[in-house]
Nucleic acid binder design. Sequence first.
DNA 1: TTCCGACAGTGGGGTCGCAAT
DNA 2: ATTGCGACCCCACTATCGGAA
Length: 320
Amino acid sequence: MAELPRLVRPMTPLPRRSLPPDEDEYGWELKWDGVRAVAYVQGGGLRLTSRNDKDMTRSYPELAVLARMLPRPAVLDGEIVALRDGRPSFATLQNRMHVQRPGERLMRAVPVQYYLFDLLHLDEESLLPRPYTERRDLLDGLGLDREPVRVPPWWRGEGESVFAVGLAQGLEGVVGKPLRSRYYPGRRGPWIKVKNVRHQEVVVAGWLPGAGRRADMIGSLALGVHDEGRLRYAGNVGTGFSETDLRDLAARLAPLARDADPFDPPAPREVARRAHWVEPELVGEVAFGEWTLDGILRHPSWRGLRPDKKPEEVRREDPA
DNA sequence: TTCCGACAGTGGGGTCGCAAT
DNA sequence: ATTGCGACCCCACTATCGGAA
């Protein structure tokens, strides 16, 4: 029996704001919002490991069929997803990902699928040095596209239209992989990702103190948006500003200090406990990925002040 | 010399499990 | 019983540094 590599750290894509000029040199895939997983198939058995090499096998018993679908030693790379309204939903998957031994009821309520997008080892051979296109062709030829395993499509070039498709389907974005590039375990790049980033105007309603390097500075800003005449809590943002930005914000917020929580309903207690409230008069803009089910910004980053906007005009855009 | 890639360190939302209260 | 915290997942981002270009 051939020996499989003990562990292969997954390769991660480098974030980019826009498509590269040489987009035709890349293979393009849609980006699936789930949990990254490397699969080791051998002797009819399956082992799943996380990005940090934690064993996830027991959490997803229904994926064990992969070992029966593929009766050859192999290492595969992909994303475990849970569908909601026909597309991968990380929020839905969160009901599964921490459960070590899911019961029948949970597995039926939140079924998962394994979206494969790379083949790293097959039989006796490591495929890491092979070009992306060869690995993909080999993977596509294994006949693994049967639920709960899927082998989603990819495209040579066409980054623009793949991105448009992802946008239209409400997906996270696209991943580009240089057609002739090998697989570099654990490295960021040369894969790239272009995310479907959204923007939202927000009212600054308070701030939380920082720690460590950020001690004596602002750690994050508490954000709100108006909804039916009330200022609704929309989460905190703690990244995207330089130290200069933080000092400038502190100076602007100091004269606006107030004692009472300006949110209605009040902010969650974990936030309120540490918050320094201000009059909700400063307007800024954040980039973010999506709204959570509770109306909180996911993956927010600060983009700057919007002195041209009035706080009472700040509404949640695109409530869907 | 400049630039790029990797790392460390800050911050976010969310869930689960467990210890302290 | 409730609360708080760390460990996991998903991240965005700034600042730094050493080696590649």
